[in-house]
């Protein structure tokens, strides 16, 4: 069984149809990249999978381990193992990154029938993970994403992913607004999480990120449909030739 399966998915926003029949299978251990120009539905796809309000699924299915994801509330999806690394992480004033992480981690542990994490154990874990990601430990004392630079925000997303160990991670334009050093750090974090029982869906506009996070499969999204699929070489081809031929073909 596929880890995440998207079957003929149609979705609209404010009455306007954005996704027009997406079908995609992510096997455990695989990294899939979704590429495409702006406005083709890339972010809609990630928001629909994560369960954001305002997106109406009109047709199709999303299954995680064969379970109906669309029937779950956003938090249930998260606890079931779907993680979305946001393109624009939200600022939450007054809430320290550490308190946020702990609350999220305990929500997951509760789901797994485990007791709340002990304070010392938690700090040890965060210390280890921040060190692993080359992040200053002090960052977790700051209010979540408040006043973070673009790079810090994306690193904080990867830190959360590392702590929560999801089954499926969706990276929504994680490379946007990152300089080359930050891109490397973030990618290394993601790569360290690659494992035989986890899948990634990397959504990006540019091929650049895929130099660091090398995908198994690349899909081109245009006008709400997947118009081409291939191996990692497809990304290079897109980089060289642009999206024009797919856009025209799909229109």
């Amino acid at each position: 069984m596929a880890l995440l399966e998207i079957k003929n998915l149609y979705a609209s926003v404010a009455g306007k149809e954005i996704l027009k029949g997406i079908t995609l299978k992510l096997q455990p251990g695989e990294v899939h990249a979704i590429m495409g120009p702006n406005g083709t539905g890339k972010s809609t796809l990630s928001n629909v999978i994560a369960g954001r309000d305002g997106y109406e699924v009109t047709k199709g299915e999303v299954l995680l381990d064969g379970e109906d994801v669309l029937a779950m509330a956003a938090d249930e999806r998260a606890r079931a193992g779907i993680f979305l690394a946001f393109q624009y992480p939200v600022e939450i004033p007054g809430v320290t990154t550490s308190a946020f992480l702990k609350t999220a981690l305990n929500a997951k542990r509760r789901q797994e029938g485990k007791p709340e994490i002990d304070a010392m154990e938690f700090l040890k874990l965060v210390k280890a993970k921040t060190a692993q990601l080359g992040m200053p430990y002090d960052m977790i004392k700051r209010a979540l994403n408040v006043g973070f630079s673009g790079g810090e925000k994306k690193r904080a997303e990867v830190l959360q992913m590392t702590m929560l160990e999801p089954r499926v991670a969706i990276l929504d334009e994680t490379d946007s607004g990152l300089d080359i050093d930050a891109l490397r750090v973030v990618s290394e974090g993601v790569n360290s999480l690659r494992s035989p029982d986890r899948a990634f869906l990397v959504i990006t506009h540019y091929q650049r990120l895929l130099d660091y996070i090398v995908p198994d499969h690349v899909h081109v999204l245009a006008h709400g449909r997947i118009v081409a699929s291939g191996g990692k070489e497809l990304a290079l081809e897109l980089e060289a030739e642009g999206y024009a031929k797919y856009l025209n073909a799909a229109a």
């Binding site: 994560a50 956003a74 938090d75 998260a78 609350t103 999220a104 929500a107």
Partner: peptide, 8 residues
């Protein structure tokens, strides 16, 4: 939504 996406 951000918080709920993290499982809360």
């Amino acid at each position: 939504f951000y918080c709920m996406q993290r499982g809360m």
